[in-house]
């Protein structure tokens, strides 16, 4: 399987980032893996790497909802304001524990490619690759 050039994990939970990194590297999903601890850091990374089509512009962003400084919603709102040439090529999937009905309403007005409930598993990663990138993990 051809690996993704770059993926971005956005979560303030270091343990969760560690586990997701472990999972993604074990599954050999991506060449490069960026980690941001909140929305603001993620926004800075996207602005830095995605002005042009570079190998370090993430093709997949896995976004947590509850984060300090800038949460997932606020990131999406700020992201919508950005004008990037590669925007259409960036897939954003939200990782949530459970969505409050009020949050559900809010998120529907923002651009998100998909929702997945935590924790991230091999099956879920497989689903993402198939749905958004038409790639299949090699059979073990």
């Amino acid at each position: 399987m051809e690996k993704l050039t770059c993926a971005l994990l956005v979560d303030d939970d270091q343990t969760n980032n560690y586990l997701n990194k472990l999972l993604l590297s074990r599954l050999q999903v991506t060449d490069k893996l960026l980690v941001a601890l909140n929305g603001q850091e993620a926004l800075a990374l996207v602005e830095e790497h995605c002005q042009e089509a570079t190998p370090s512009c993430p093709a997949l962003i896995l976004l947590d909802v509850k984060m300090p400084v800038m949460n997932g919603f606020e990131f999406l709102e700020a992201y919508a304001e950005l004008s990037l040439p590669q925007k259409h090529a960036i897939i954003i999937v939200m990782l949530t524990t459970s969505l409050h009905p009020q949050d559900m309403e809010r998120v529907q007005k923002l651009h998100v490619d998909g929702f997945l409930s935590k924790p991230l598993t091999k099956a879920k990663v497989e689903g993402i690759l198939e749905t958004y990138f038409h790639r299949h993990l090699p059979k073990e």
């Binding site: 939970d13 343990t15 969760n16 586990l19 524990t97 935590k118 924790p119």
Partner: peptide
């Protein structure tokens, strides 16, 4: 979140 981390 923490329990799913523990599980992970």
């Amino acid at each position: 979140a923490p329990i799913s981390n523990i599980e992970g």
